[in-house]
Computed example of a mutant assay.
Amino acid sequence: MVSQLTRVTNFSELEVKQWYRLFLKDCPEGVLGEERFVTFFCNFYKRGDLEKKKALATQIFRTFDRDGSGSVDFREFLCGMSALLRGTTAQRLRWAFNMYDLDRNGSLSREELLNVLKLMYELQLTRRFDPDDPDEIRRAESHLEMMTEQIFQALDEDRDGQLQMREFVEGFRRNPSLLRLNSVEMTT
């Protein structure tokens, strides 16, 4: 198993073994269930709306759970971590696409992209701003709507209102400045 995971991930044999020990420490039964993941995620992010944190955690979990079994085994976990931590730009973009694809139909709508961006931004917002301030919420939502529109304008080649995996990955690779849109400060 170690040599196979070394071939399909960006981790060395030693790193695979270290990850495995850590995974078994937290998941002695060898799998990570959705409920446990969601609880861990929500506890890690102390502030913010609990239901929104659960929604984002569930979507992240589903992205790791590639076979849709309702649990993440070590292989799924390590492949996901490899893409996130050491993956190429294309691997990271494919992982992000799968996270944004809420209905798992293989394409992204504006609404899907905007919903996940809002969930992610809220977690960031709670660390920097008062999440109960209606002006800050309005500015954040306006910023995210603008961001979503810019992404679709740049990437939706066939103008069908849906982003396919190829459009998403190749579009961001051709337009790396779009990846920095979410770092733009929200101003009035």
Score class of each variant (00 low, 15 high):
Y100H: 10
P176I: 08
K25M: 09
F129S: 13
K25D: 07
R104L: 10
L5G: 07
V72A: 00
M99E: 05
E136Q: 11
E76G: 02
F172I: 10
W19A: 01
D49C: 11
N98Y: 09
L125V: 12
P176S: 13
K46Y: 07
H143S: 10
R127F: 08
L5C: 01
F74G: 07
N175G: 05
L24E: 02
T126K: 03
N105M: 01
F41R: 01
N105A: 02
I60L: 12
A96N: 00
F61Q: 07
Q150I: 03
R7G: 06
E141N: 14
L50Y: 12
D133Q: 02
N175R: 15
G70T: 13
P131V: 14
V8E: 11
N175A: 07
L123I: 13
G87M: 03
A55N: 12
R180P: 00
L117T: 06
F64Q: 01
E157C: 05
D135Q: 15
G106F: 01
A57F: 06
L125S: 08
G80K: 05
L24S: 04
L5H: 04
S177Y: 13
I137K: 15
N115W: 06
L163K: 02
T39D: 09
S109R: 02
M81D: 08
L163G: 00
V8R: 04
M165R: 12
V116H: 00
L114F: 00
E29M: 10
L163N: 02
W95H: 04
E157Q: 12
Y121W: 10
N175Y: 10
S177Q: 15
L50E: 12
R174N: 13
T58H: 15
L32Q: 06
W19P: 03
D130C: 11
Q91I: 08
L114T: 02
T187Q: 10
M186K: 12
G106R: 11
L123G: 02
S142Y: 06
F74N: 04
D65G: 03
C42E: 08
Y45V: 02
D133F: 08
L155V: 05
E15G: 05
Q18M: 14
R66D: 05
V2T: 15
F64H: 03
S71I: 03
V169T: 06
G80R: 07
R36E: 14
S107V: 12
L119N: 06
N10D: 12
V38N: 03
V169Y: 02
E13W: 12
M165P: 03
P131N: 13
E13Y: 06
R7C: 07
E136S: 09
L125G: 03
D132Q: 15
V16T: 08
L50R: 13
F37L: 04
M165L: 15
S183I: 13
M1Q: 05
N105T: 00
R86Q: 07
E141F: 04
V72I: 15
M186A: 04
R104S: 12
N43H: 12
M120Q: 15
D133M: 11
N98Q: 14
Q18K: 15
R110N: 03
D135L: 13
E149S: 11
D65W: 04
C42F: 08
A90F: 06
M81W: 11
R139G: 05
L114S: 07
N43A: 06
M1K: 04
M99T: 14
Q124I: 11
L144T: 05
E112C: 00
C27I: 05
D160V: 01
I137N: 07
F41Q: 00
G33D: 10
